[in-house]
């Protein structure tokens, strides 16, 4: 508990500092995908977001660009502040984050990737094959912000093309798994809603699909050694706690410490396991 509080105070202090310097709390608007250069100038940690094709729509969903780009920008800044991870910055302290297609060779320069709103994802055979190769070689994928049964079914159907459940079953990750204690001790899976829903509900409701999404899940697909290859945060929008951390103190206090604790734990796990 003490660790958790320490983390929260760290995050708060860092947020205040960042707020004074940057305009990163602004989440609305259209941002084009920031593809990696042909030759990267570093080999440090970079947040890579998967650019995929949506084959259906989810309420309030934005497809691959959901929570982009401030989710990763804010998370990388927090990562550099709360850990010893060398995070590369470009220009005016803009952390180097990229968007990659599954069919691009640049995918393999990103041992950590994330995708949001994967309840709408549709994978071609080529994309599924490439993603499988990426994961089995040691890549890590975190999918987030997909709510309810239909979104889960869509995602689980598509990921089955990559890693058939007979061989790589999806399982719930218990709270005593090392991923929940990489740096901060996470004692429950936080259900984080997008800020618009939060505002509309007056901050009382966190399940965006009502009874169909009442419980947040942390599920995973592991490799032969039990290491998590694909982490899934279902019925929760962890990335929104990073993206919108500066928009409302109430939202921040309710969600961001938990969101960052989980986010940094997952990043550290991806860099160590």
């Amino acid at each position: 508990m003490r660790i958790w509080l320490t983390a929260a105070s760290f995050v708060l202090a860092a947020a205040a500092a960042a707020f004074a310097q940057f305009d990163f709390f602004r989440g609305d608007g259209f941002y084009g995908p920031r593809f990696p250069p042909a030759m990267r100038t570093d080999r440090a940690f970079s947040f890579c977001r998967i650019l995929y094709t949506s084959v259906r729509r989810e309420p309030a969903g934005g497809g691959w660009r959901t929570d982009y780009p401030y989710g990763e920008i804010n998370l990388m800044i927090r990562l550099s502040e709360l850990t010893k991870t060398p995070v590369p910055f470009e220009g005016e302290r803009q952390p180097a984050h990229y968007v990659v297609r599954l069919t691009s060779d640049a995918l393999f320069d990103c041992p950590f990737t994330m995708a949001s709103d994967v309840g709408t994802i549709g994978l071609s055979q080529a994309e599924a094959a490439q993603l499988r190769l990426y994961l089995l070689k040691g890549g890590f994928l975190w999918v987030d912000d997909f709510w309810g049964t239909r979104a889960w079914e869509q995602w689980s159907r598509e990921i089955a093309k990559v890693l058939p459940p007979t061989e790589y079953p999806i399982e719930d990750v218990p709270l005593d798994d090392p991923i929940f204690s990489s740096q901060f001790v996470v004692t429950e899976i936080p259900q984080i809603t997008n800020i618009g829903f939060w505002r509309r509900s007056g901050g009382r409701e966190t399940s965006e699909r009502g009874a169909d999404s009442r419980e947040a899940h942390f599920r995973a697909i592991r490799d032969d050694h039990g290491r998590i290859m694909v982490a899934m945060t279902h019925n929760t929008d962890v990335a929104d706690s990073w993206e919108r951390e500066g928009e409302d103190p109430g939202f921040f206090y309710q969600f961001s410490p938990d969101g960052y604790a989980l986010g940094i734990n997952v990043l550290l796990y991806a860099m160590t396991h």
Binding site: K84, T85, H225, R227, T272, H273
Partner: peptide, 27 residues
């Protein structure tokens, strides 16, 4: 925290005669 350590651990994970004890400074 860096990927080099992760992949070194993975590379020797199947070697029954090496025990790689990692002390990782995270913060």
């Amino acid at each position: 925290p860096r990927f080099e350590m992760k992949f070194i651990r993975r590379a020797v994970a199947d070697d029954q005669n090496l025990q790689l004890v990692v002390l990782q400074r995270t913060a």
